[in-house]
Amino acid sequence: MVQESRTIESRRLGKRERREAMHAYVFMSPVIIGLLLFTLGPVLVSLGLSFTEYNLLSDPKWIGVENYIKMYGEDLFWQSLRVSAIYSVVSVPLGLVLALFLAILLNQKIRGMYVFRAIYYLPTVISGVGVAMLWRWIFNGQYGVINTLLHNIGIKGPNWLIDEKWALTALIITSIWGVGGTMLIFLAGLQGIPQELMEAAEIDGAGRWQQFRHVTMPLISHVTFFNLVLGIIGALQVFTDAYVITNGGPNNATMFISVYLYRHAFIYLNFGYSAALAWVLFMIVLVLTLLVFRSSPIWVFYESERQGKS
């Protein structure tokens, strides 16, 4: 409705406004073209493809919902959902708690703090294939660092990447190591908390924990929200680590949905089936994101509310 009234308004508006609108479209043109060409167009085509069988060699063949039915009956599909779900359910909350904890530590006023901030952020900058290979070597059952350290304290470490029971844990540990990005966003949120509020709480006799619980937590809840949404979306799409470190193995113990999808698209050339997979992933992400958004009035506290109350 807002849109409509604005359009009518602009029709009434004079030459100057029309010129302004024209320039606006010129400026926005990269985004408009990009949205159509690389996002909206492909999204629609992908939905269409998900109802076809297509392998590049012949034209797409319409098969209705058969891809989805096939998926439903496919054990490996359910396994990939299970792997991605376990990974997300463990790594996202663990990452959030650790990131917040680190951010609080890094928010202390200690000289030279920027060195620590840089170190903790480093794994986010140096990520990718090289580091994934480094992790393969670190998790090496016989000669890897982790098992050496465990050995030193008298524990016989598992054969991480070859053992079905431990491979996913290894990938979760890897993800936790790269928690610096989330941490930095929390730190930004913490620095936005007005000092007077903390002081006021202290004068009122609030202890450290109470300050954290009743001042810090509510005031950074919008940051937590942001990190949670991005964390879920990211965890459900993790690819490089899964591909390089374990490539879905051992015995599909790390067959993430992204790896499963990649194989169907670019190894087996089942473009229709992989488009259907992508749509299922999209729906899962959408539902989870909506759930988080829906739940937000309960636990996310917005600045405007505070101003409204005072």
Binding site: E20, M28, L35, V43, Q237, A265, L281, F282, V285
Partner: peptide
């Protein structure tokens, strides 16, 4: 200012939540 500007902007931001896999194959 231009008609539809804010709509395009919201659409753009919404794409941040779109998994890359959806646009990948097409």
């Amino acid at each position: 200012r231009a008609p539809g500007r804010d709509f395009i902007f919201m659409l753009l931001l919404a794409t941040l939540m779109l998994p890359g896999a959806v646009t990948l194959v097409p």
